[in-house]
Design a binder for these strands. Structure first.
Lengths: 228, 228
DNA sequence: TCAAAAGTGTTAGTTTTACACCCATGA
DNA sequence: TCATGGGTGTAAAACTAACACTTTTGA
């Protein structure tokens, strides 16, 4: 190839987790190499010559934080000159969802530390990672308006109130419990179980539901309009 | 920078035009250099070291086809190894909309020819450009469900039927004229003019409308739910 | 028996859908 | 005067929004 081009390519992952008690969190790692040594940053790194972009993100996520993820979509490519002090570096950012209770975070060789941070309370970040997270948060906040959301974020079986809280968090306003249930049940994505939540706090124990995966993924693919 | 990485970065543009009579068309150029010499392909090319991705697409579009565009959004980044026979080349694809009647296509130095092709009738394409166009068409087909569409595609002043035909093309089914008008007028994005369409064919001449740009761009930013 | 959270229906208002006749123009 | 396409309203049905009392449990 005769082209002279001095651009390097990286990938970064914005992985969101949801805890009904805490809200929406994002996975950050603490850098062990300059630039931005010891700063918090998104997991990510250089793409190898023979791996796909998806393989690169998955690999970096696993080696830097121990998180193995099954939902990842491409978010946006950030390519402004000057976004990295080392030179011209273009980064393809990915957007992931996980249930954080399924993992023990394991900072490994490439990262000093890996932690969940509430998106309302982020530390100073390396590079333009704050911007990338902003874009990802917007994407998340739009996503649930045209596809179902929750499968990757909640436990396998969950009380309907957890799903409702997720939607309240995304909408950033209270939702009427009865109308929400009508709407969600009408979508047909929930399966009711004859089990009740083990008591964690006071009050009447809630019935548990899970997602009807076939219908959930069908709606995810086809799209829908969710308005509440 | 110590990293050894042998990946090159290109940009490609999927520019859609709309002609009420013909439907939705995409701008293609005929290649003057190998690989895929003389094949039809998307306008695009290598990113220069000191330009942003947007600058790169705009430049390539203008030099290859003479199209100067004012609506461009990033579409997706295609990075599978093997998508380009010259080596590992990652391409950031952009999505653009123009009114094709505003331009004379001018194939220049870098392209043998530049032409509009109906998206239902594409020639064989270079690289993975057919896939890229597929992704762009999906994007276009989703776009009008959550933002207004038409401003970049139609004439400044247009009969409401042109807008309706655009939506029918995107939805790929007929729309009730009266309900469509109610819906669109209710959005408040149209300004009625006291002018009538110059006769092009038979029948009663239509009133002309234009977009209320302030309101149009407000809805575009905020999003909306369009269902008809 | 009290406090906490879950379960559950009805009504008014709004939105959506389906549907057909008359009007202005050029041929 | 005919053919073509444009302009326009109403009624039934579906959906959305607002609202409060009862039940189950643990403390």
């Amino acid at each position: 190839m005769s082209i002279k081009q001095n651009i390097k390519l990286t990938v970064d992952a914005v992985v969101f987790g949801y805890k009904p008690k805490e809200g929406i969190e994002v996975l950050l790692i603490k850098r062990t190499i300059p630039p931005f040594l010891h700063s918090w940053a998104l997991p990510g790194g250089f793409v190898l010559d023979d791996e796909s972009l998806e393989e690169a993100v998955t690999r970096e996520l696993e080696t830097e934080s121990g998180v193995r993820i099954n939902y990842l979509e491409q978010l946006y490519t950030f390519g402004k000159a000057g976004r990295d002090p080392r030179g011209r570096i273009v980064s393809v950012a990915y957007f992931g969802l996980v249930n954080p209770t399924n993992f023990k975070l394991a900072a490994s060789s490439d990262a000093e530390d890996a932690e969940w941070f509430n998106i309302k309370d982020l530390p100073p970040l390396a590079f333009d990672h704050a911007t990338i997270i902003d874009v990802a948060v917007q994407r998340l906040r739009n996503k649930f308006r045209y596809e179902p959301v929750g499968f990757e974020l909640l436990d396998k079986k969950f009380p309907i109130a957890d799903l409702e809280k997720l939607y309240e968090t995304l909408l950033d306003r209270p939702i009427d419990r009865r109308n929400f249930q009508k709407k969600i049940k009408h979508l047909g994505i929930l399966i009711a179980h004859n089990e009740q939540q083990k008591q964690v706090s006071q009050g009447r124990p809630a019935k548990l539901f899970s997602f009807d995966e076939a219908r959930y993924f069908k709606l995810q693919k086809e799209g829908m309009a969710f308005e509440i």
